[in-house]
């Protein structure tokens, strides 16, 4: 469903993503982890056609992204790292705009949207988006993406800013969509989310994929520790002793 070959992205001198080879299969939830500035958002931006890669190839749903860009964009759903929408539209106007643009099945999508609104407590659709709090906007963003039930979903830190209940609901919804055949690619800093939800996990550091596999595979392939947190820290080169010492000295 998602496949990349030797993907590279440079910003001037800086190499943000280096030689990335990914493969995510149908119905899979793939967790993409890494420290700040590792290149997660950059990768998602390339996979969703926001950024052109410097070199390398991307296939989504079996199609070359470069050649079938619009077709692919119609099929996928993206929740960017920041929920930015048109400030001077009201929530409901934005929703109808999205429905019109994607030319979706109206009845079904509307029904699904209303259900999601119930679940997320979205009751502010008649207000301007510019007045939303971060979490409110994030929920609307998630709802407008999920209502289309896309075949492939990209989510960049989707639970940031969501309240406890909404975050739980989102996780359950993602699981359900995956079970029904959607492919999900998400980044997160909350390892518990990754541990519980993801079928496979990729860890990126300084632009390079340093480990990949299910939790068990990660444990055996050199990451020290029982929990994902310990594995993650040892893989990304953080040392527990050193950190403790630094904190002591503060």
């Amino acid at each position: 469903m998602i496949r990349t070959k030797a993907l590279v992205k440079c910003f001037g001198e800086k190499i943000a993503v280096n030689n990335l080879n990914l493969q995510v299969n149908k119905g899979e939830i793939y967790g993409f982890l890494g420290p700040n500035g590792a290149g997660k958002t950059t990768t998602i931006k390339m996979l969703t056609g926001i950024l052109y890669p410097t070199s390398g190839e991307i296939w989504i749903l079996g199609k070359d992204l470069r050649r079938h860009e619009l077709e692919i964009k119609r099929e996928i759903g993206v929740v960017p790292d920041e929920p930015r929408m048109y400030k001077n539209l009201k929530g409901m106007e934005f929703v109808s705009f999205i429905m019109d643009i994607y030319d979706v099945n109206e009845e079904e999508t509307r029904r699904r949207f209303e259900e999601i609104c119930d679940v997320f407590n979205i009751d502010y659709l008649d207000e301007f988006i510019g007045e939303y709090s971060h979490g409110m906007a994030q929920k609307l963003m998630v709802a407008t993406v999920m209502m289309r039930k896309p075949k492939v979903l990209f989510l960049d830190e989707p639970t940031v800013g969501l309240d406890v209940k909404s975050a739980r609901m989102l996780k359950m919804l993602l699981k359900k969509y995956a079970d029904e055949g959607s492919t999900i690619f998400m980044t997160t800093h909350i390892l518990e989310v990754a541990e519980k939800m993801c079928d496979r996990i990729g860890i990126i550091n300084e632009g390079e994929l340093i480990a990949e596999g299910s939790l068990d595979e990660l444990r055996t392939s050199g990451g020290k520790g029982e929990h994902l947190e310990d594995i993650f820290l040892s893989l990304t080169g953080a040392n527990d002793e050193e950190m403790r010492e630094l904190v002591e000295n503060l």
Partner: peptide
Amino acid sequence: AYPMSVLLP
């Protein structure tokens, strides 16, 4: 609204 418009088909 970036990257909204780039994501749209």
